[in-house]
Computed example of a mutant assay.
Amino acid sequence: MDMLVSLAPIILMFVIFYFLLIRPQQKRQKQVKQMQSDLKKGDAVVTIGGFHGVVHALDEDTVIIQSGDGQKLTYDRSAIREVKSQ
């Protein structure tokens, strides 16, 4: 019984860490993965490097993004940070 009482603060700390840090991070990763899989031609996107453009073409693992001046650059899908609302 004394051992259980002495382990209670450690268990409580782990539960708090899980609900405040680990679980929200997992939810965010799931949302980002869903957003990257839902990409479609014509979406306005921002990459993790801050490049703004429009999806020109899609492949299974890559995305071709067209910039405002017409240049086309190829990125991995995982490099897409967000889809901007138009």
Rank of each mutant, 00 (worst) to 15 (best):
G49Y: 06
M1R: 07
M35N: 03
K33Y: 06
T47P: 04
D69Q: 12
I65D: 03
D76I: 08
P9C: 01
D61A: 12
V32Q: 11
S85A: 15
E82G: 03
S37V: 05
V54C: 10
G68M: 14
K27H: 09
T47H: 00
V5K: 15
S78N: 13
D59N: 08
Q26C: 09
K30T: 05
V45C: 03
V32L: 14
R23P: 03
I48F: 10
T74Q: 12
A57M: 08
G49W: 01
R81A: 13
I64V: 12
G70K: 00
V83Y: 04
L39E: 02
V83R: 04
I65K: 00
G49S: 15
A57G: 08
G49P: 09
S37K: 08
R23N: 05
K27F: 05
M13R: 02
I64D: 15
R28C: 05
Q31D: 08
V32D: 08
V46Y: 09
V63D: 04
V54F: 11
I65N: 00
I65H: 03
A57F: 10
L21S: 08
D59R: 07
I16D: 01
L4I: 15
V15K: 02
S37R: 08
A57S: 15
V63M: 07
E60L: 10
M3R: 15
Y18R: 02
S6I: 09
S78G: 11
I80H: 04
H52S: 13
R23T: 02
V55H: 04
D69S: 12
Q36V: 03
V63Y: 06
Q36M: 02
D69K: 11
Q29M: 13
R81H: 12
Q26A: 12
